[in-house]
Design a protein around this nucleic acid. Structure first.
Lengths: 197, 197
DNA sequence: GGTTTAACCTAATGCCCCTAGGCATGTTCC
DNA sequence: GGAACATGCCTAGGGGCATTAGGTTAAACC
């Protein structure tokens, strides 16, 4: 019989595709195996188990999303960069709902594996460099990065969960949110912290 | 043999407790049944199945969270109200991680059941009334509500997922985010929309 | 070509979801 | 009080999934 030629990466990719098609919680070892034309037990050669597979999907998604953001923001600055960054984030979530959902489980990913994936770290770094133009200094910079990431993630998560039932199109609220965040970053309220960061 | 006296509400409550203790994805019919001292098949008298149970946990959590927010914001206005609102939200997520996680699956909840639960709708209404003091008008009001909800949810979701690896305490970033949002609401950028909402 | 490595397999265990059908416990109505 | 009914909880069982153990065979290396 001919071998399927699997690798951990190919298994994770099949899982990611499945996640986008049928939802992350429907990604099972059995289903991934069927998609790859292989028995489920065979997957354990490449992947430690379902948890590990999920972690790999998450890291794959983080890498892809980061790449998209990097391409979108390249050569841009100021509000241009902010909008490009945010739109790339949201579009990735829309195009790959299952993969995106996987990124929310980062807690229990194998640390050794996570250390090799550049995605999550790079995404944070990209946020920092995007904010460079606004002239913030630490610790305000970290606070601003966290605020932006929270808002971007929260928006697409609520959107995906059907949280925007009101008639107004989410796209408009999104655009306005970016306007607002831009204004906010330009007039970042002065810190009243007497302590160290 | 003595009856357990179950109801859909008691089953959902047991599921919610379990979710907080062991994680939402570890909430199984079998485990809930064991906790209630009953065989798993018996639960199907009260709950349609696992999906239905999850939906009921989500609605239970939404109701509880809304109540907490309502109590926290009662009699407050302006930034006081904003901070009380946000803190109540975040504290609920911290105290009840499993319940909170359930609120993120609202898409496929039985619509008939959801219509009877006041929580989700009430939560949005509370956000609107909290913003009353900032003098926004539609459609800016809806946009602001969505921005706030996105940020609150995004922050606690990232926090729960271990997304804030940096040394700075999340609490400080949270406080600063609320400062920033308050400032933002006071100086909401003018809409350049020529169209209808 | 023979040996070694590892990719893939079969088999088996145990947990889970869910349905069907039975019995016993409460309730209602005389 | 007792008959008739509704229903809470049960046992039994089918089918799916995750995972492990151990066998086989294709590929890689000498």
């Amino acid at each position: 019989m001919v071998r399927a030629g699997l690798t951990p990466e190919r298994v994770a990719l099949a899982g990611a595709e499945l996640a986008d098609e049928v939802g992350l919680d429907q990604v099972t070892m059995a289903r991934v195996a069927r998609r790859l034309g292989v028995k489920d037990a065979s997957l354990y050669t490449h992947v430690r188990g379902l948890e590990d597979l999920r972690g790999r999907i998450a890291l794959l998604a983080a890498d892809e999303k980061t790449l998209r953001i990097a391409e979108a923001t390249a050569g841009r600055s100021g509000k241009d960069a902010l909008v490009a960054f945010a739109d790339a984030w949201r579009e990735y979530a829309h195009e790959h709902p299952g993969r995106y959902a996987a990124t929310q489980i980062s807690v229990r990913i194998d640390p050794e594996l996570a250390a090799r994936a550049p995605g999550p770290r790079r995404a944070v770094e990209l946020t920092y460099s995007m904010l460079r133009g606004y002239g913030l200094a630490e610790p305000d910079l970290t606070d601003a990065v966290r605020l932006l990431r929270s808002t971007f993630h929260g928006f697409v998560a609520l959107e995906a969960a059907g949280g925007f039932a009101h008639a107004r199109a989410p796209q408009r609220s999104w655009t306005r949110a970016l306007d607002a965040l831009h204004t906010l970053l330009e007039h970042w309220p002065p810190s009243r912290e007497g302590e160290s960061p």
